[in-house]
Design a protein around this nucleic acid. Sequence first.
DNA 1: ACAAGGAAATGGTCTAACCATTATAAATAT
DNA 2: ATATTTATAATGGTTAGACCATTTCCTTGT
Lengths: 252, 252
Amino acid sequence: MILQPSEKSKPGLFRAARQNRIFQDVVDQIQEAILRGDFQPGDMLPPERELKESFQTSRGTLREALRVLEQKGLIEIRLGVSGGAVVKAGMTEPLSESLGLLLRYRKISLAHLTEFREDVEGLVTARAAERAGSADIEKLEKLLSRASEMVAAGIGRWREFLDADKQFHQSLSRIAGNPIYIFIHDMIHDNIQPYYDVFLPPDEKMLRQNYQDLCEILESVKHRQVSAAGEQARMHVHRFNEYMRARHRPDA
Amino acid sequence: MILQPSEKSKPGLFRAARQNRIFQDVVDQIQEAILRGDFQPGDMLPPERELKESFQTSRGTLREALRVLEQKGLIEIRLGVSGGAVVKAGMTEPLSESLGLLLRYRKISLAHLTEFREDVEGLVTARAAERAGSADIEKLEKLLSRASEMVAAGIGRWREFLDADKQFHQSLSRIAGNPIYIFIHDMIHDNIQPYYDVFLPPDEKMLRQNYQDLCEILESVKHRQVSAAGEQARMHVHRFNEYMRARHRPDA
DNA sequence: ACAAGGAAATGGTCTAACCATTATAAATAT
DNA sequence: ATATTTATAATGGTTAGACCATTTCCTTGT
């Protein structure tokens, strides 16, 4: 038996009972079809002029439905012949976009986001330390050795080093074994990256410190020192955040 | 100086350069106006027939833009005279909805979500223990005493007890001082609630255990025992999850 | 074999009307 | 006077049919 929440599964318990709106009905039907698996990621929906007749509606109404589905991240719309609505696999953009809006709406501040990141990275690393297998360790070591080359190559390749650093953390998220962490991780990264792009580049000392941190984290993960790994990861991110904060006036 | 990411702040570094789409331009302009504060939450946008002329576009195109803004959670559209697009304050629904889609798309499982919830509740409670002031403690004690009445009143009022339990955790989120946790908390709750609604009600023993947990958590928070509070909250949620899991066949 | 050009499919936009819903004002009844 | 009902009008929701813009892909010519 598959757990199924009471009808429709919309988050707010129920959604307002306005089945008036025809386009909403179209949205629901197409969404169900996609979620049910009638359309696999990569598949294309029929062209608008066909759909409009399937749903017995006007093209305008149908297009409003497609706009909603597009915004939900379920489909992507391509132009030109053999274009049309293609079913997407990801669905991660809406999450990042919502967080971005919260930032710009001043519902949360950059400081909140960086603090949250520290917490999450700590959690993820702790979980990863619990669950890492030997293959995982090897993967991490490979990434670390790449990072080592970059830091040895000097300040000029800081961008590549930070990329290795990012992949290290992403790997930890995967090892942690809960895909939610991957999504959360991406969501944070998407929104924090633009700020870093403005305030970098870092100095040599920072890079070495960063590399040192990763080594210690890997060592703790290797030895299943769960809480140590978590705390080290927390501090690793914390130091980086403080470093970035020092590069401009303190923000609210 | 206000930290501002490099132009537009879209998550994926940049958004596809299709300024072809007129409705997208309309979306951007209205969104900027809202985020800039030209429209406060509760304010109403001009009616469609006016906007269409402001933007020098057709009503259909304008409506596609409004659909996107509505889906983003920035506006809500009411029917009838003196209806129209009203600027919203929340913006939390898109987050919950996206998580719901990930669940239904089988990108994540209920088990992943419950595990995540344990972690988050642990983190939040630890932070709350760090930061709780005397006013916060009083608030928590008041909630707890209400819960006490409910559990004393017997199994019949389990729904009210669980509501008090929920508010207790929500208060902890607020005390933790990072609004992101409130959003995450709501997001989890919105998506996990429908499942609980199906499989409850709980038994008397569960309620008492639950109440006992809350008492211990509050005690730890009171005495600034940060890691103890976190771990107790984790286990509190964990026990509840296990209890719920036992009420149906194991799911994938 | 390759390049240039054109035909066709598909999404994007426009126009102009009508339908549906609802707050408010007007009319009516009590 | 007050309450109830009814009519009005503003606003979003929908429709129909046309045309524009973009892109693939096939034809044609070299």
